[in-house]
Design a protein around this nucleic acid. Structure first.
Lengths: 110, 110
DNA sequence: TTTGTTCATTGCAATAATACGATTAATAAA
DNA sequence: TTTATTAATCGTATTATTGCAATGAACAAA
C-alpha cells in the first residue's frame, strides 16, 4: 500500500535502506559529489551547477541534512553547505559492512 | 513531477542512484542479507523469512534480478535464487568509489 | 525605509513505489 | 487426468516522491 513496513525489519536493515534511499536520486548524488569536489562549502551555485529549480534543490538538500550527511551555515543571505565528515564516515561504515558481505562457501545452485 | 530528470546527470550518477534505489527498501536489504547468509540458494522460504506476501517478495526479487544482483534457477515448481557474485562485485566497486570520496583540503566553513 | 538577493516553505500536479488479493502458468504428485 | 504446489503476473488501492510556481522570511545594500 505504498508504505514500507519498517517494523518487520531490523534497525540495521532500516538504517541501510534509509541511507541508500537518499542516494537513490541522481540529483542528490550530484550534489554530494559537487560538495566533495568544491570542498569549500557551496551556497546557491548548486542550483546553477545541477540544473534543477531552486525549490527542488532546496528540498534535496533538506533530505541530505535530515540524515546528517551535510550541514549548512547561514552567511548573510546565502547558506553554505558542506559534507559532515563525521557522519559521512559513520554512514560509510554501515554501508560498507553491507556491501562487503561475502559468500564464504561454494554455492549449491545458480 | 515525480520523474527523475535522468538526462541532466552523468551515466555514473544515474548508475549510482539506480543501485542505491534498489537498496532503499528494507525488504530488499533483508532478502540480500538472507541470500548471503544461506549462501546455498533459497527458494520461496524468503516469503516466510521476510514476512511479506508472496507477490510482494516476488516483485522485490524481480527488481534485484533486473539490476543483475541476483539470479534465479527454476527447479521443478520452485525457483532458487542466489547472489550474482560477479555483478555484486561490479556494483561494489561503483558504490565504493562514491562512498570513499574524500575531502583532501581543510574546509572553509561549517 | 525601500529594494534586491538568497533560500526555505507551501501547495499542487504528475509520476513512482509498495503491498496484496486474485489469477495464471508451470510443474510435480497422486 | 486431476489435484496440489510454487511462483509470476495482473489489477488496484494507497502512499511516497519529484518538480516547480508562488510566496514568505531573513538579511544586505541603497
Amino acid at each position: 500500500m505504498g508504505v514500507s513496513k519498517t517494523e518487520m525489519f531490523t534497525d540495521q536493515q532500516n538504517e541501510i535502506a534509509l541511507f541508500a534511499k537518499v542516494f537513490g536520486h541522481p540529483a542528490r548524488v550530484a550534489i554530494l559529489q559537487h560538495l566533495f569536489k568544491i570542498n569549500a562549502c557551496v551556497c546557491g551555485d548548486l542550483v546553477n551547477e545541477i540544473g534543477l529549480a531552486q525549490p527542488t534543490i532546496s528540498q534535496h538538500l533538506k533530505e541530505l541534512k535530515y540524515l546528517g550527511l551535510i550541514k549548512g551555515n547561514v552567511e548573510g543571505t546565502s547558506v553554505c553547505y558542506c559534507i559532515d565528515k563525521e557522519n559521512w564516515t559513520k554512514m560509510k561504515t554501515i554501508m560498507s559492512d553491507f556491501l562487503h558481505q561475502d559468500l564464504t562457501d561454494n554455492q549449491n545452485c545458480c
